[in-house]
Each structure stands twice: as structure tokens, then as C-alpha cells.
């Protein structure tokens, strides 16, 4: 079969195979109109739900609060737990839904994603979409990697989580100084509430933000409530900022620590 002929036949087979009742167009439009009108009338009655952006900000805070509440609750649980480590882990699992649907803002679009619970080796649990990402062990650190193998032209993409005994602010300051030696663009240490209350250091390699494949590295440092810190390293490239970068942020929003020393 010649190329053009084959292409045309594929297209024609699609047109034939996806035929639908023309009435559907008006039916679906009517449903859309109803839905939009319902939402708008709700908006008038409840002004706080009008704008997605406002809702988003409150949502983040709420999740942040929930995260600390859940973390405290789990920590409290460890105090009364006399069972073995595995029983404790079971309790952690019971505290959290194994799977849930979360709303994420990816590339400017709100998406609902199905995420599942994953247990890290450094005393925490985290949610992510297992169809897109997996967690592996790299030299004792948990690394969340993209399931699809990218061609060599693409810089590395991953998020790595570990725990250290140093304080978060000290680590952030040291990392800032270290990154300045290696990256052309390094932002000063910042304190953020979202995706998790932490100190953050952000750096861009390559041309410093002018090329699509400039490597990006972002570190989050936050207390592990035991005098040390969690260190989260995100690595991706400039063009992937709104894709992988945003997904890593949402994963971190779904990060819950527990006291691993009680195991």
C-alpha cells in the first residue's frame, strides 16, 4: 500500500469508526450550559468560591495544616505504640488512604490525578501517580523517577528525599554557597509555606535560563521534628518546569512525616 493511500485509509477508517448521532452535539452543549449556569449561580450565593486562584491558595494552606495535623497525630501514635516496627507501619498505612484523587495545577490546567501512597525509607509517606513515576533506592536515598526513559539529549528528571542530622537553615545556607560555585543562576535562600513549610534554594544551570534544556535544581530543607532535617532535591530541565517540576511540587504537598526512630 502506498504511503499516501495508507494514510488516507487510516483517516477514513477513523471517520467511519467514530461516527456519532448528530443530536449529541446539541445535547452535550445543553448540559455544558446548565453546568456553567449552576456553577455561576453557586458563585453568586457563595462569593468565596468564585475564583479558582483564590480557592487554590486556601487549598494549599488547608493541605499544609492537614499535613501537620496528620504528622502530629502519627507522631502521637508512636508514643503509645509498643508493638513491633511493622505494626507501627501498618498503623501509618491505616492513617492514610492507599489511593486518592487530588487536584493539581499542571501547565496552567487543573487536572485530577489518581495518586497512591508510597512509603519512603527516611520516615515519611508520600503520594504520587505510580503510572508516571516510581520510587527507587539510590545510595540510601529515595529517588522518585519518571517511568519513561528519556533520550540522552534530555537532562535528568527526578526528586530525591533523604534525612540528615543538621538543621534546615544551616543546610540551606551551605547549599546556596555550594550551588553558587556550580550554577550561573542561584536564587537566595527563601522561606516558603507551599508546597511544604521549608527553606528553599533554586538554581538554573547551562545558560542560566535561556535554553529549553538548562538543568534546574531545587532543594527544600525542613525540620524532621527530631533536631535534623529532611532534604528534598528536585532535578529537571527548564522546559519541564510546568510539567515534571509542577508534579514534584504537588507530590511534596502530599508529603507526611512520621517518627521512624520508633520502628
Amino acid at each position: 500500500m502506498k504511503k499516501d493511500n495508507f494514510d488516507k485509509k487510516v483517516k477514513d477508517s477513523f471517520i467511519e469508526g467514530t461516527d456519532y448521532d448528530p443530536k449529541l452535539k446539541d445535547d452535550i452543549w445543553n448540559n455544558i450550559e446548565k453546568e456553567i449556569e449552576n456553577e455561576q449561580s453557586e458563585t453568586i450565593n457563595v462569593p468565596t468560591r468564585t475564583r479558582a486562584k483564590g480557592k487554590k491558595k486556601r487549598g494549599y494552606r488547608k493541605v499544609g495544616m492537614l499535613a501537620s495535623m496528620a504528622a502530629s497525630l502519627v507522631l502521637a501514635l508512636t508514643l503509645v505504640t509498643t508493638d513491633t516496627g511493622s505494626a507501627f507501619i501498618d498503623q501509618v498505612r491505616q492513617m492514610f488512604e492507599p489511593e486518592k484523587t487530588v487536584t493539581e495545577q499542571i501547565e496552567g490546567i487543573e487536572n485530577e490525578s489518581d495518586v497512591s501512597l508510597h512509603e519512603g525509607q527516611a520516615g515519611y509517606v508520600i503520594y504520587f501517580d505510580k503510572e508516571m513515576y516510581s520510587m527507587i533506592d539510590v545510595e540510601g536515598k529515595d529517588r522518585i523517577i519518571f517511568n519513561e526513559e528519556l533520550p540522552e539529549i534530555y537532562p535528568e528528571v527526578y526528586m530525591e528525599i533523604s534525612q540528615t542530622e543538621e538543621s534546615a537553615l544551616n543546610l540551606a545556607t551551605k547549599m546556596y554557597e555550594q550551588l553558587q560555585q556550580q550554577y550561573p543562576k542561584v536564587l537566595e535562600v527563601d522561606e516558603v509555606e507551599w508546597p511544604i513549610e521549608s527553606f528553599v534554594v533554586h538554581a538554573v544551570g547551562g545558560t542560566g535560563g535561556y535554553e529549553w534544556d538548562d538543568p534546574v535544581v531545587r532543594y527544600y530543607f525542613f525540620s524532621n521534628e527530631q533536631g535534623g532535617s529532611f532534604v528534598v532535591k528536585q532535578k529537571y530541565f527548564l522546559e519541564a518546569g510546568e510539567g515534571h517540576g509542577a508534579r514534584f511540587e504537588h507530590m511534596l504537598e502530599q508529603f507526611y512525616m512520621y517518627d521512624a526512630s520508633e520502628n
Binding site: G17, T18, Y20, E35, I36, E110
Partner: peptide, 26 residues
């Protein structure tokens, strides 16, 4: 509608998908 039908292989699902897509777009 055609892409949703081809991807989901189900016309009822495709109708729901298209409806939800346009609402999200709006």
C-alpha cells in the same frame, strides 16, 4: 467527539469526556 470515541472506545464515555473537557476549557 471523534478523538474521545477513538481513545475511550466507548461513545457514552466519550460524550461525558467531551462535556467535561469543554467545561474545563471554560
Amino acid at each position: 467527539m471523534r478523538v474521545a470515541t477513538a481513545v475511550t472506545k466507548n461513545q457514552n464515555t466519550a460524550s461525558d469526556v467531551v462535556q467535561e473537557t469543554f467545561i474545563r476549557v471554560y
